[in-house]
C-alpha cells in the first residue's frame, strides 16, 4: 500500500522524465542513445542537452528509479560510456504514468470533439 502511494505521489511526471523512462523501458541504454531516442520518441519536440540529460539521470539515480547497467553494446570501456536501465520502481512509475495518460485519453474519447452547445 505504501509503495502504491509512493508511486502515485510522484505523478504526473515531467515530459523529460517521462521520455527518459520510456526510452529505458525496453532495456539499458547509454547517454547518447537516450538523447537520440528521446528526440525520436517525441518527434523532435524534446531535444535534450547533455546538461539536462545528466542532471535528470542523476536525480533518477538518487531516487532509485534507474540504475547503472552494463553497456548493451559492450563498450563500457575507456571512453567512459556507461549505460542505465530502469529499476523495478522506475518501471512501476512509468506504467502508472502511462495508465494515467491512457485514462485521460479515454475520458476525452467519451466526448465528441468540435461540438459546442452555444
Amino acid at each position: 500500500m505504501d509503495t502504491e502511494n509512493d508511486i502515485y505521489a510522484n505523478l504526473p511526471l515531467t515530459e523529460t522524465t517521462y521520455f527518459i523512462l520510456l526510452s529505458l523501458s525496453p532495456g539499458s541504454r547509454h547517454g547518447y542513445s537516450i538523447m537520440k531516442d528521446v528526440r525520436q520518441l517525441s518527434r523532435d519536440r524534446v531535444v535534450l542537452s547533455t546538461g539536462t540529460l545528466y542532471s535528470a539521470l542523476k536525480r533518477l539515480l538518487d531516487q532509485g528509479w534507474i540504475r547503472r547497467a552494463a553497456d548493451p553494446q559492450g563498450s563500457d570501456d575507456a571512453r567512459g560510456r556507461k549505460a542505465y536501465c530502469l529499476t523495478s520502481l522506475g518501471q512501476q512509475i512509468l506504467e502508472a504514468e502511462v495508465q494515467r495518460l491512457q485514462g485521460l485519453v479515454n475520458a476525452a474519447q467519451l466526448r465528441p470533439m468540435g461540438t459546442y452547445s452555444d
Binding site: G51, Y54, S55
Partner: peptide, 25 residues
C-alpha cells in the same frame, strides 16, 4: 541548446546536491 540549458541544469544539480541527495542517500 547546450548553452541555453546550462544555467537551468546547473541550478538543478546544485539544488539536488544541497538538499535532495543527502536525504535519499
Amino acid at each position: 541548446n547546450e548553452l541555453v540549458s546550462l544555467p537551468v541544469s546547473l541550478a538543478r544539480v546544485r539544488r539536488s546536491g544541497r538538499i535532495n541527495r543527502p536525504i535519499y542517500s
